[in-house]
Design a protein around this nucleic acid. Structure first.
Length: 423
RNA sequence: GGAGGGGUGGGUGAGCGGCCGAAACCGCCGGUCUUGAAAACCGGUGAGCCUCCGGGCUCCGUGGGUUCGAAUCCCACCCCCUCCGCCA
């Protein structure tokens, strides 16, 4: 959510920035609602003041024994109260409308974010070299099937299409990766470990920015009015909802492991077979609550932490900066890590690291008190995958495959599971 | 799921129709004292909205209701605690 006051003070400036993301955005209706609202507030407050003074007078009259005068006063106040109630109802309606409008607006892109749509993303750097094969590299689905570590047909029997089932060494590798990443961030990068609930209420998703716009992406339990976690970002941001933190405690860094569930409504495609786009995957998520002064520096640090995972596994990847048109609703700037999948000859996102600035903080009223006192300010929130395992799993198979379909595990992983190769 | 108790400012907690944005204590900030610090003492210290920048209004879990007037009374819901039941 954007700051209404700053929209009011510089509507042209805000609109210009928003249009870098979406040229169809218009602030005029919102500004009109705001004008109406403020006019109404003035009337309502005048009436409230009148009622308050009148009521105090009634009390005085009654105490002084002027019962009759008090009754007359009460009669007029009764009318005033009725009028006030009607106006208050209108005001509540207006404020709700205004709030809904405000919720629809995405975050302002940071100045360093390039213009344009999906295709305009900027390559920042890459790490390592794509492995060379003197044979046709296979798809991880094929490798996983042959190695007996991935079983989609049986998963479909249990649940349906696009749900993964890891079995044998596949299950052990998956679990080992999750645990190792989690420990890495806790022990070497100083994150506070969290295992949150996997179901959360609508308010939580409103704060994170998933709702109201992206309800179709979420699995929902109507009996309980709860949504299934699509990314731990949504959960972690709510950890400090409605709190005033101390600047001394910032940045607060959390790492969570959660399964993630996404309906992926309307996504199909041969190229997204296997583990690339599934309804359920595992993710280790990194999250910062920090100050506006240091949030962009923290974003770089966060990206570095995610990169360490890929580096330790010796996987070739690249780092890209998303353009305005490809930003998530809540993000002001997003840096993606994309791992190379030779079986498909392309890169896939394994981490998306964003600075949401005060967008989520404003929705969730997450503030901090500046050092040495003063008014509370909104924190900046950052999130990033560190990492999502299903695609990581796929990359490990595809980048380390051998002509016969066996896979040489990276040394680190080999040690974790006690096997050097899958065959 | 059943019975009972409770949700008040950064924290603990008093208030149970008007004098309450709200006692007290803790914390925090400033001062006195001290070589410095601690202790002690004194003073200050909630958030948000509107503004003709004088000020005004709102907020005591959430939403309704009663009333001239609600933190206080009534109803519904949510959450927490205790006990019982069920259960990995």
């Amino acid at each position: 959510m954007l700051d209404l006051r700053s929209i009011r003070e510089d509507p042209e400036g805000v609109e210009a920035k928003l249009r870098r993301r979406d040229p169809t955005i218009r602030l005029a209706p919102l500004l009109e609602l705001d004008r109406e609202r403020r006019a109404l507030i003035r009337r309502v407050e005048d009436l409230r003041r009148e009622r308050k003074l009148g009521s105090e007078e009634v009390a005085r009259l009654q105490q002084a024994g002027h019962g009759e005068e008090a009754q007359t006063r009460i009669a007029t106040l009764k009318e005033l109260s009725a009028e006030l109630k009607a106006l208050e109802e209108r005001l509540a309606e207006l404020e709700e409308k205004l709030y809904q409008e405000l919720l629809k607006l995405p975050n302002l892109p940071h100045d360093s974010v390039p213009p344009g749509g999906k295709e305009e993303k900027v390559l920042l750097r890459s790490w390592g070299e794509p492995p060379r094969f003197d044979f046709e590299p296979k798809h991880h689905l094929e490798l996983g099937k042959k190695l007996g570590i991935l079983d989609f047909p049986r998963a479909a029997k249990l649940t349906g299409t696009r749900f993964p089932l890891y079995i044998g060494l596949g299950a052990r590798i998956e679990l080992a990766l999750i645990h190792w990443m989690f420990e890495l961030h806790v022990r070497e990068h100083g994150y506070v470990p969290v295992l949150p609930p996997i179901l959360a209420n609508p308010t939580s998703f409103l704060v994170s920015g998933q709702l109201p716009k992206f309800a179709a992406e979420l699995y929902y339990c109507p009996e309980d009015d709860l949504y299934l976690n699509p990314t731990a970002e949504s959960l972690l941001v709510n950890l400090h909802r409605d709190e005033i933190l101390s600047e001394e405690d910032l940045p607060l860094k959390y790492v969570a492991y959660t399964p993630c569930f996404r309906r992926e409504a309307g996504t199909y495609g041969e190229e997204q077979r296997g583990l690339i786009r599934v309804h359920q995957f595992n993710k280790v998520e990194l999250f910062y609550f920090t100050t506006p002064e240091r949030s962009y520096q923290d974003l770089e640090e966060l990206v570095g932490h995610a990169e360490r995972v890929l580096q330790a596994l010796g996987l070739h990847y690249r780092v890209t900066l998303l353009p305005c048109g490809d930003l998530a609703q809540q993000s002001a700037k997003t840096i993606d890590l994309e791992v190379w999948l030779p079986g498909q000859g392309r890169y896939y996102e394994v981490s998306s690291c964003s600075n949401c600035e005060a967008y989520q903080a404003r929705r969730g009223k997450i503030r901090f008190r500046p050092r040495g006192g003063g008014k509370p300010e909104f924190v900046h929130t950052l999130n990033g995958s560190g990492l999502a395992t299903s695609r990581l799993f796929a990359a490990i198979l595809e980048q380390n495959q051998r002509p016969d379909g066996s896979v040489a595990l990276p040394p680190l992983l080999a040690e974790l599971v006690g096997t050097e190769e899958l065959s």
